[in-house]
Simulated assay, not measured.
Amino acid sequence: MSEMIHLSSAVRQNLLSLQSTADLMSKTQNRLATGLKVNSALDNPNSFFTASSLNNRASDLSGLLDDMGQNVQTLKAADEGIQSITKLVEAAKGKANQALQSSSTADRRKFASEYNDLLGQIEDLAKDAGYSGKNLLGGGTANDLSVVFNEDGTSKLSVSAVNYTDTSSALGLSDLTVGTAGTVATTETALMAGKEGTTDKLEIKVGGVLKGTLDYGSDASASDIVAGINAISGITATTDGTNVSITSEDGQISIDDTVTTSSDLGTIASTDFTAGSFDTDTSIDTSIKSLTAALSTLRSQASTFGTNMTVVENRQNFTTKLVNTLEEGAGKLILADSNKEGANLLALQTRQQLSSTSLSFASQADQNVLRLFG
């Protein structure tokens, strides 16, 4: 049986005070080291679990913030794409207006070819307007955007993609038929072989309509005839001294002499003429109307994407502030006040010193008994 050591009341009281102070110092030092006044559920169950819930929600929302930021970039890429496409459509409209102001079919066909090039650039630009695997100008449900705003997914924004990779579908802008000139190919020999006397003439028709009549003349040469044909408005004739090419931008062209004999030139007609979409004012006006409608569509879609971007950015800012509010609320429940805890530690150290001194005094009182036996 072990023997018990009996302490005087004064010593025991001072010892208990020292133990209590040491325990408080340990807790205070832990708070200063961790920065938390509630480190576990044992410290304060209500504060600990409430703070954990707030921090968990803040963490979930922080994850959504990253997605919102990426979705904003996707919307920006689409908006920048639309702005660039709008400029290209305006350029195409400029080409149509240039064609309308020109009376040259050849120039109009050049403008039609440049118009088609611009439509190709629009489609290529739309294909390149994606961001991180999403292209709101590429069409298809796979490119639709869904922006989630809260942790359970009940608050979200859906953005539907449009398809500008095919200008004919969403914008109503189809490639134009550039057109092909009607061309007659013959030789100087064949051209002059049809001459029958001084009264024979050469007729040039375009689209079945007589455009000009040339008198062969008694001393007209092949080069004279070619020059005469070339002087007719809307017709181009060239020769290299052997072969003759006669071209009309306005329709199928044919040549024939007026005197019919066994050595008659015979009708020579082109078969390669194709009318162009910009050949007539009416067709150009139709294209300009389509371009105006396309610009209206683009501006409306740009407004829609702009509204969507504003919504996402607002929710992004709100979520950032909400995360800060949640973390601040959790901190008020579990974070330690370093200034207060530092002051507490200093006070406890002072108390510990005083308790040690008091214990020493109490021990000295007991030691005085020994002096009786000295």
Rank of each mutant, 00 (worst) to 15 (best):
Thr236Glu: 11
Glu313Ser: 15
Gln19Gly: 11
Thr141Gly: 08
Ala220His: 13
Asn308Ile: 08
Gln121Leu: 04
Ser356Glu: 15
Thr239Ala: 00
Glu313Pro: 01
Ile232Ala: 02
Thr236Arg: 04
Gln367Trp: 05
Ser254Met: 11
Ala10Glu: 04
Ala269Met: 06
Gln13His: 01
Ala227Gly: 04
Asp152Val: 08
Asp79Gly: 11
Tyr115Asp: 03
Ala343Ser: 14
Leu345Asp: 04
Leu118Lys: 03
Asn243Gln: 02
Thr280Ala: 06
Ser355Arg: 04
Gln98Pro: 02
Thr183Ile: 08
Ser113Trp: 00
Gly81His: 03
Asn163Glu: 12
Val148Trp: 00
Lys340Gln: 13
Leu42Thr: 12
Ile253Asp: 05
Ala142Leu: 12
Ser233Asn: 12
Ser132Pro: 06
Gln98Arg: 08
Phe273Lys: 09
Ser155Asp: 15
Gly197Arg: 11
Glu123Ala: 03
Leu18Gly: 02
Gln101Cys: 03
Gln19Leu: 14
Glu3Ser: 07
Leu118Gln: 07
Leu291Tyr: 09
Ile82Arg: 02
Asn56Ile: 01
Leu7Val: 03
Lys321Cys: 00
Tyr164Ser: 11
Lys76Cys: 02
Ala347His: 03
Ser169Met: 01
Lys195Arg: 15
Leu322His: 15
Thr280Tyr: 04
Ser356Lys: 06
Ser158Asn: 14
Met68Cys: 02
Lys93Leu: 01
Asp272Ile: 10
Ser233Ile: 11
Ala99Ser: 06
Glu341Arg: 08
Gly140Thr: 03
Ser287Met: 07
Leu333His: 10
Ser146Met: 13
Gln13Glu: 14
Asp117Ser: 15
Ser360Asp: 07
Gln101Val: 10
Ala231Lys: 15
Lys87Met: 11
Thr292Lys: 14
Ser338Phe: 09
Thr292Trp: 04
Leu64Ala: 09
Asp240Phe: 03
Val259Trp: 05
Thr320Gly: 10
Ser2Ala: 15
Ile255Gly: 08
Glu151Val: 02
Ser84Ile: 03
Gly212Val: 07
Thr307Phe: 13
Ala91Ile: 07
Val209Gly: 00
Lys340Asp: 08
Arg108Tyr: 04
Leu75Arg: 13
Ser300Trp: 10
Asn71Pro: 04
Leu354Met: 09
Gln349Ala: 01
Gly35Trp: 09
Thr50Cys: 06
Arg299Thr: 10
Ser47Arg: 14
Lys134Val: 15
Gly69His: 03
Thr350Ala: 12
Gly329Asp: 08
Asn116Tyr: 01
Gly120Phe: 05
Gly194Ser: 11
Ser84Glu: 10
Thr28Glu: 11
Leu42Gly: 14
Ser218Thr: 14
Gly179Trp: 09
Leu191Thr: 05
Asn308Cys: 06
Ile204Ala: 07
Phe318His: 12
Ser2Lys: 13
Tyr216Ile: 05
